[in-house]
Design a protein around this nucleic acid. Sequence first.
DNA 1: CGTAAAAGCTGACATATATCATTGTTTGCC
DNA 2: GGCAAACAATGATATATGTCAGCTTTTACG
Lengths: 261, 261
Amino acid sequence: MPKVSEFQRFLYDNCQLFNNFMVILGKAQKMDQKSRCENCIVRQFNSLRAMTKEELKRVSDSKLMKTVKKGEALFEEGDKLNGVYCVRNGVSKLSKLSANGKDQIVKLATKGEVMGQRSVIVEETANLSAVAVNDMEVCFIPKEAIVNTLHSNPDFTYEVLRHMAHHLKEADDVIVNMSQKTVKQRIAEAFLYLKHNYGEDKDGYLLLTLSREDIANVVGTATESCIRIISEFKKKGLLKSSGKKLGIVDEKGLQDLADGF
Amino acid sequence: MPKVSEFQRFLYDNCQLFNNFMVILGKAQKMDQKSRCENCIVRQFNSLRAMTKEELKRVSDSKLMKTVKKGEALFEEGDKLNGVYCVRNGVSKLSKLSANGKDQIVKLATKGEVMGQRSVIVEETANLSAVAVNDMEVCFIPKEAIVNTLHSNPDFTYEVLRHMAHHLKEADDVIVNMSQKTVKQRIAEAFLYLKHNYGEDKDGYLLLTLSREDIANVVGTATESCIRIISEFKKKGLLKSSGKKLGIVDEKGLQDLADGF
DNA sequence: CGTAAAAGCTGACATATATCATTGTTTGCC
DNA sequence: GGCAAACAATGATATATGTCAGCTTTTACG
């Protein structure tokens, strides 16, 4: 029934009542045992693990799974979020448009991470946009399920707090890096980050491939500068490439560079 | 009794048991009614306002007041914090030393703000150093009082979470500004920030006076560049100065500049 | 398969910013 | 009041990075 999916799309793009409709449309999906939160391994990595069986059951009943294609947005800066997104698969970039028209990528969110928490907790519109870097599978969890649990289960609240505290530390560190390191250092760091967080294949190529533009937006530089520096790293034997894929050849060299020799 | 204060200093600098001793030494102070948390207006601005009367009483019994002179550190990056600091008066800079030897000021903390929360919550050493920008009055609250309440009072935990979420948003915005705005824009923004958050006197001079070096460390630039741009702003009639004091003359002009014309 | 669009690359050049060196000015303090 | 130390100011110069423009390669897709 292709009509239904177009209707979903329409609602998603335009309609305040999106969530209510989606819940109805999603009923069929929810019967799938494999998609129950209680059995979802991803939950172990985020604050949902502090929920009780009953709470999880309620979340699972109200959540709905969604696939997002590479390049599609989960939400945009300024959107009112009616819930959070739990990443089952794929990677999303969380970015913000600056006055000069460039996107700054503030964070990458992977399997297990929950997006939109902050906005739901403080009841503000989204501060960042979330766009899929590759094909994704996410679960949308309506905010009521989250907010209710926040008020009734202190363990869950504490767990969310711990995660938020961790993100805050990371953000502080990014601030320092952004303002005190050169573009070259930040690019070197970005590759080390990609290797350590997303790993590499048997041939030593990074599993997560970002475009030069995305890398530039992560480190906050012009795309051309980013390309130039990557070329330089390849010439120096720090990186290698094969098609779109990039791989780290000399990790120690990159690390030294990132640390300022 | 000058001996006691030297002893306090010694403990503060060197001793793991610092807190225990200080509690004993602080008994006399605690009797002062004016210093009871229950009556402290500062509390209204931070998460302590979500504490119950009993919890506050316990905090008040275990807390100790402390004065910190301009330039002194409350704690340093890497310190193990045995509690949090609630600012009653004065301003502290929270900064981190980068590899190139420069301090990046990540945040300024004022009256009502609680410092060190994050480290206490996640049980990590401090990620930032806190140094007094001017003379301060702070209350040290041992971590037990905080952690116990976090586990027993969900309202308090939620309130802390809301504050943390707010800080995270601010941090994300700083990341975007740092990477996408020019030094000139960031300095203009810094002055607007100082005016809006700390106000100005009748003559239009900012109430919080930061050294050029501190301003440079806030916006992440070299001190000389900062001085040059401030001079330029003065020539252009955007700022004025009198002794150490700086004042905003043309707020709209500064705002336009910060927004990129 | 072929074409258009997107992504990647490179050069030339402009500019913002850092760095180093020197001098002037304020401040705290004996 | 005077002196040292910190702070502020300014010039000269080097460097990193952004911008614009043109070109090549890869990818998407009808």
